[in-house]
């Protein structure tokens, strides 16, 4: 989320740019006054940023699939981010002019809050639209804060699998139901982003050094979970279930070559749908798509 923006020094610009997409912009847009709509927002900055994000997503999922390496070589990937963040902390602290003890206080405050957030334990929560709305607004706040990831907050609130399964419904016969369930989440995210960027931009305008010091603290607090050497435990979410023939080609193939389970997503055989069928040929079996997500990690010194 906000980590990279803080590291490369565009954090303040990012927050102000997000904030510039306000109700006036929406009003101009729906009344087709496009030039007026564009004049009030930081569209050049956002277009370049979004183009960068989009090409990075393509590059790091299709060409260098980071999401796979995070599961197969976690030490290398987490090490890379650990080094990146340690270096950035030093550079960012040096950039704060006239570092004094009161800066150290804000950095410590941020570190404590950051550490507290990244070591929270998942809690069971309600699936009412109101709570889903709230989850969306909290997760988006985490997304714009450095050191804390939005998807991690969803895990803590036990809404990650819920949102994922609703997104999985899109494009199937349950599209309408999925959309209806996601709607409170999206509305929450928009509301959260609008309110939180206003708070952050006010803080950056009035207490710039203190705010940046707390944000650097968040980065320091997050080092605990970024440390490359950890005992990691994962939770598996079934995102898709398909019923196939028990003796069919795909089922046989999976029995002969069991799937690699240290991948972020893989397909494996589930339960037999009709175990009482007379012949194996009549039986049907579930083919499930499993998504793995890191839920707990305990750092150790190698």
């Amino acid at each position: 989320g906000g980590t990279m923006a803080l590291i490369v020094g565009i954090y303040s610009r990012l927050i102000h740019a997000i904030k510039s997409f306000d109700t006036r912009f929406v009003k101009d847009l729906v009344t087709f006054r496009f030039s007026s709509a564009l004049s009030g927002v930081h569209w050049r900055f956002m277009t370049v940023l979004l183009a960068g994000i989009f090409s990075a997503i393509l590059f790091f999922t299709k060409i260098v699939p980071l999401q796979v390496y995070m599961f197969t070589d976690p030490e290398l990937i987490y090490g890379l981010f650990f080094g990146l963040i340690v270096g950035s902390i030093v550079i960012l602290l040096k950039a704060l002019d006239s570092f004094g003890w009161w800066h150290a206080f804000y950095v410590l405050l941020g570190t404590l809050i950051g550490f507290w957030v990244v070591t929270l334990v998942p809690a069971d929560t309600s699936e009412s639209p109101l709570f889903v709305f709230l989850s969306g607004s909290i997760a988006i706040c985490a997304m714009v804060l450095p050191g804390i990831s939005g998807s991690y907050i969803l895990l803590i609130l036990r809404k990650y699998d819920y949102i994922l399964s609703q997104v999985g419904k899109l494009g199937t016969v349950e599209t309408a139901e999925g959309l209806l369930m996601i709607l409170p989440f999206v509305l929450g995210a928009i509301t959260g982003l609008a309110l939180f960027t206003r708070l952050l931009s006010w803080l950056l305008d009035h207490y710039y050094v203190q705010t940046i010091a707390v944000l650097i603290g968040f980065l320091i607090g997050s080092l605990y979970v970024i440390w490359p050497y950890q005992d990691r435990s994962y939770e598996e979410f079934i995102t898709e279930t398909e019923v196939i023939e028990y003796t069919g080609e795909r089922a046989m193939e999976l029995r002969e070559n069991p799937p690699e389970t240290n991948l972020p997503t893989y397909r494996r055989l589930g339960e037999v749908v009709n175990p009482n069928a007379t012949f194996d040929e009549l039986k049907q079996i579930e083919l499930v798509t499993v998504k793995k997500k890191l839920v707990k990690s305990d750092p150790f010194i190698p």
């Binding site: 070589d73 030490e75 340690v86 270096g87």
Partner: peptide, 22 residues
């Protein structure tokens, strides 16, 4: 995989120092 973590951390540090230098 002690070495992997070390190599990763070094690459990360070099990247950020390089960026700052530029």
């Amino acid at each position: 995989h002690f070495g992997h973590g070390l190599i990763g951390m070094l690459i990360g540090l070099v990247m950020v120092i390089g960026l700052d230098f530029l």
